[in-house]
Design a protein around this nucleic acid. Structure first.
Lengths: 202, 202
DNA sequence: TGGGAATTTGAATGCTACTCAAGTTTTGAG
DNA sequence: CTCAAAACTTGAGTAGCATTCAAATTCCCA
């Protein structure tokens, strides 16, 4: 677990010397978002919680947007690991439901999903970051494909197609959860996905 | 076509007297976004193009966020009308494809979708605006349901379910288009949706 | 141990949303 | 028609934020 982000010192040639410091800042960022809320988040809030100055945070990450996308990458990496651990101990039926729960936002304030919304609204311009984000999506789809393959005896290709379509569906449903659309809470989203899955699975 | 937004003068009791003025500002906002780009958009850019002061724009709309959400509402209302007109002249098969084209973003810079991304990242807090946004979603789903009902002879309920699922799928795919994910352009998104639709339609 | 590179700071900069006091125009009651 | 209240309009002012930067400190290794 290292080297999440993409920032670098002004005229950099080589990434910074202390990846620990970067991870430390990103954890502070998560904490800050939870405490002050996403819309009120200032770099100052992150710096305070990381025990350093605002200038120093920007020295490592270059811009506010890069802090946020790096925080998302860390958050996805952590959840990727957590998913692996949790699903290993469940039977296929329970694993399917748990995967959906882990993927979807827990509420309109869900930090990981607020970060996604932020990144979609102000996308990074470097391809490497985009590919890393896509990698996490693929990891989710692969995990879902594995589960439904065993669960429904689908072929590899059919399972992959099913998985990708339903991950995209969850992305779409998440928009409404993030908007706080009346009646469209986390439970609604979960039921909608599972209903769609049951259409195709026996 | 009137009364798109939700802003009001400071201690308002009644909405502003000149809805024309509001529509005028919102058209200026669309123009400004196209010209200066979404990320660089300042209220000043909108005010200049509307031929008024920044203070006046804010007098009508209250905040930058409200301008943007109102612009989205206008954009959706226009597209709603345009969809109605265009689809009326097409056979069911062509209408299905055209509806998908109209719904999806045309590129990563698609103004309507950039507005959606912005609104999801900073959601409005008043329920009325949320319900109006939801109304446009429902309108899209209803239009799609009508087409597939005729096209595939589905029952009303099945068509509605099909339509809602595929609109959500398009929402999810749009995220990748907006991100500028390599290879995931407007054409990719369109093909992905149509492929999913063909799975269920004869 | 000396010096260059990396790190760290917080004050300065600059930009932008938002406020406001002061006018101008519109409206409608009488 | 009259005139005062309400609505409208302005641009200068305020405040808050991301970002820059010059200077100070620490680290590294030859």
């Amino acid at each position: 677990m290292k080297h999440y982000g993409c920032g670098m010192p002004p005229e950099s040639k080589i990434a910074l010397e202390r990846p620990d410091m970067r991870a430390h800042v990103l954890k502070a960022a998560l904490l800050a978002i939870e405490e002050v809320g996403f819309t009120r988040l200032r770099i100052r809030d992150i710096a305070d919680r990381a025990g350093m100055s605002t200038g120093h945070v920007l020295y490592y990450f270059g811009s506010r947007d890069r802090i946020l996308v790096s925080t998302l990458l860390m958050s996805e990496a952590d959840l990727d690991e957590r998913r692996r651990v949790e699903l290993a101990g469940l039977d296929d039926h329970a694993a399917l439901e748990r995967l959906v729960e882990l993927y979807l936002p827990k509420s309109a304030q869900d930090v990981r999903w607020r970060l996604w919304a932020q990144v979609v609204a102000r996308p990074p311009d470097d391809e490497e970051t985009l590919l890393r984000l896509d990698g996490f999506f693929r990891s989710w789809a692969a995990a879902l494909a594995t589960v439904v393959r065993r669960l429904a005896g689908l072929g590899a290709e059919a399972a992959e197609d099913f998985a990708v379509r339903h991950c995209r569906l969850m992305d779409g449903l998440s928009n409404d959860v993030l908007l706080g659309m009346p009646g469209h809470d986390a439970t609604w989203a979960k039921e909608a996905v599972l209903a769609s899955m049951r259409r195709e699975l026996p």
